[in-house]
Amino acid sequence: MANLQTLQSLGISLPSPAYILGAVLFGLVGFVAYRYGKRAGRQRSKWLGVALMLYPYAIAQTWLLYVVGAALCVGVLIDCD
């Protein structure tokens, strides 16, 4: 418990369960989009998949994680048509 208090005193906090769930979910969707784009020869789907896998590392707010993830997922769906 002392380690957690030390981290909090340094300004470091653990992510919420909702954030972790979103990061895992969008990472899996990104992996599937990457594989699909690579096999089908769709460059946009492939790079949107890479973006879906990597963007949670750059975003700290949970609500922004879901907004950006939903937008990227819509982009993948539009490209698949």
Rank of each mutant, 00 (worst) to 15 (best):
L4G: 00
Q43A: 14
T6D: 10
P56R: 08
L64N: 04
T6C: 01
V29W: 03
S45D: 09
Y34L: 13
V67T: 14
L72W: 07
R39E: 14
L72I: 10
L77M: 09
M53H: 01
V76I: 15
A71M: 12
G22C: 08
G49W: 01
T62I: 03
K46T: 09
V24W: 01
A18E: 14
Q43Y: 02
G37A: 04
F31S: 11
G30C: 03
V24P: 00
A58F: 15
G11A: 05
P15N: 07
G22H: 03
G41L: 08
R35M: 08
Y36G: 01
F31L: 15
A60N: 10
F26H: 05
G11E: 09
L21D: 06
V74G: 04
Y57A: 15
G22P: 09
S9P: 00
G11D: 04
M53Y: 00
I78A: 13
K38W: 01
A40T: 15
V29P: 00
S45G: 04
L65G: 02
W63E: 12
L52E: 11
L28F: 13
C73A: 14
V24S: 04
I59N: 05
L65R: 03
W47F: 14
L7F: 14
S45H: 02
A71T: 09
G27N: 03
R44I: 13
W47N: 11
M1E: 13
S45C: 15
T62L: 03
I78D: 04
A18R: 07
T6Y: 13
Q8L: 09
G30W: 01
G30V: 09
F31I: 05
S9N: 11
I59M: 10
R42M: 12
L4C: 02
S13G: 05
V67R: 08
M53G: 10
Q5N: 06
G75Q: 06
Y36V: 13
R42T: 11
D79M: 01
R35Y: 04
V32C: 08
A58K: 03
V32W: 03
G41H: 08
G69K: 07
L64C: 03
A23L: 05
M53L: 13
V68K: 02
W63S: 13
L21P: 00
Y34R: 10
V50M: 13
N3I: 05
I12Y: 05
L10G: 00
I78N: 04
L52C: 08
P15S: 05
A18S: 10
G75I: 08
S9K: 13
S45R: 05
D81F: 12
V76F: 11
A70V: 13
P17I: 07
P15Q: 07
A58W: 05
K38T: 11
M53V: 14
A60S: 12
L65M: 15
A33P: 06
V68C: 06
G27R: 07
R42N: 15
P17S: 11
V29D: 00
R35I: 10
Y34A: 13
Q61I: 02
A58C: 12
K46V: 02
D79P: 02
I12M: 15
G69T: 11
V68R: 03
V24R: 03
R42K: 15
G11M: 04
Q8I: 06
A23Q: 06
Y19S: 14
Q43E: 15
G75C: 10
V32G: 03
A40V: 09
S9R: 12
L52Y: 01
T6V: 08
G11I: 04
I20V: 15
L7N: 10
Q43H: 08
L65Y: 01
L54K: 04
F31R: 06
L28S: 06
K38N: 14
